[in-house]
């Protein structure tokens, strides 16, 4: 059996083995409430704050104490669960998955000479049911396994056509392999957090829980989604609502589509509020530009279905039959 040490758990604190490790140390929640452990609570809080700002919490595993890395993750979950705010949990999961992603990549890379890829490949296989194998310098996975994940990325280089494909297999670098499972890693961590039950917390945690609640007020989730929107537009709005990143082309689609439906820049701008890189001024500036009310005054048109399809932004349903631009959605009758 594969031996997973505390150093591995500091990197991947979401593994089930982490729970067992803790159990063996005999530490419980009550003890963590002791002032001696306050630095861990602060560290945990910091971890969440960093995550919610869209940054990745870095830890230097060489100098830092592995136990405190692991514990601060657990305490962070307790804080998050007590605060009970979905947006924060989502952002935390996302950021933690990016952090783990770095280590996975390193492990895949470093282990390559040592011929010891067991842990990273096991994590990928056990958690996400993807079989990754090695071919010379590359990692390879099956085309369907690739597609299932890569379609969520909108950069052109992730399109299958821009990959090396042979015999039903896609060739990837260590970095790409790990990047591919990022979202699932986030979901997995999110799921782990959801499954945790917290009844009561030590008094020393309370202040930080309250701080989290006020932190969360900065992100509000209110967008109006009409059922009349075409699937591509709905998808874009959903992505933004989740606080996930929508590529430029997706934002452009939303802006041009909604403008063409008579919405104003002021009505549209709040839509982008949840984006990890939101900035009110630039957003307004860009929207003004697209709407033609600034700059050269050209009003940009909504991109065609063909264009969107090539950017993996099309989610056609039968109601899309016979249209060539999302603005036609719902207008033209389906041809038989």
């Amino acid at each position: 059996m594969l031996k997973i040490g505390v150093k591995d758990l500091a990197k991947y604190p979401f593994l089930t083995e982490a729970g067992e490790y803790l159990k063996n140390t005999g530490l419980n929640l009550e003890q963590l409430g002791h002032p001696d452990w306050q630095p861990i609570v602060e560290k945990a809080y910091g971890r969440i704050v960093v995550a919610s700002s869209g940054q990745i919490y870095g830890s230097d595993l060489e100098t830092l104490d592995n136990d405190s890395e692991l514990l601060s993750f657990i305490v962070a979950i307790i804080l998050l669960k007590s605060a009970g705010i979905a947006t924060l949990i989502r952002r935390f999961s996302l950021a933690e998955s990016r952090r783990a992603e770095r280590y996975l990549q390193q492990d895949l890379w470093v282990s390559r000479d040592k011929k010891n890829l067991e842990l990273p490949l096991k994590i990928i296989r056990d958690l996400f049911a993807v079989n990754v194998s090695i071919d010379n310098e590359d990692f390879v996975i099956k085309v369907p396994d690739y597609l299932r994940r890569a379609i969520h990325f909108h950069e052109k280089e992730w399109k299958l056509v821009n990959r090396r494909v042979t015999n039903g297999l896609v060739y990837l670098s260590a970095h790409e392999t790990v990047r591919l499972i990022r979202a699932e890693l986030g979901e997995y961590i999110n799921g782990r957090i959801q499954s945790v039950n917290v009844d009561s917390i030590p008094p020393s945690f309370r202040q930080r829980v309250e701080d989290l609640v006020s932190l969360a007020k900065k992100f509000s989730d209110t967008t109006y989604v009409s059922s009349e929107y075409p699937p591509c537009v709905k998808h874009g709005i959903e992505v933004l609502e989740k606080g996930e990143n929508l590529p430029h082309s997706g934002r452009f689609l939303l802006a041009t589509y909604l403008l063409s439906k008579g919405q104003t820049v002021d009505q549209i701008a709040p839509l982008f509020k949840n984006a990890p890189d939101y900035n009110e001024r630039t957003t307004k500036y860009q929207l003004d530009h697209i709407s033609g009310s600034s700059g050269g005054g050209t009003k940009y048109q909504c991109p065609s279905c063909d264009k969107l399809r090539s950017e993996s932004l099309c989610f056609a349903i039968p109601d899309c039959d016979g249209i060539i631009n999302p603005v036609q959605f719902g207008k033209k009758r389906k041809s038989p």
């Binding site: 099956k142 085309v143 369907p144 597609l147 299932r148 890569a150 379609i151 052109k156 280089e157 399109k159 299958l160 056509v161 821009n162 990959r163 494909v165 039903g168 399809r309 090539s310 950017e311 993996s312 099309c314 989610f315 056609a316 349903i317």
Partner: peptide
């Protein structure tokens, strides 16, 4: 059986592969 479970989006990218749609010089 490998391709059976693919949903619409995934098939769209597969079809782009077959049509050689969206290829970039970098690749």
């Amino acid at each position: 059986a490998d391709y059976e479970p693919l949903v619409s989006q995934e098939r769209a990218d597969l079809v782009d592969y077959i049509m050689f749609n969206g290829a970039i010089p970098e690749s």
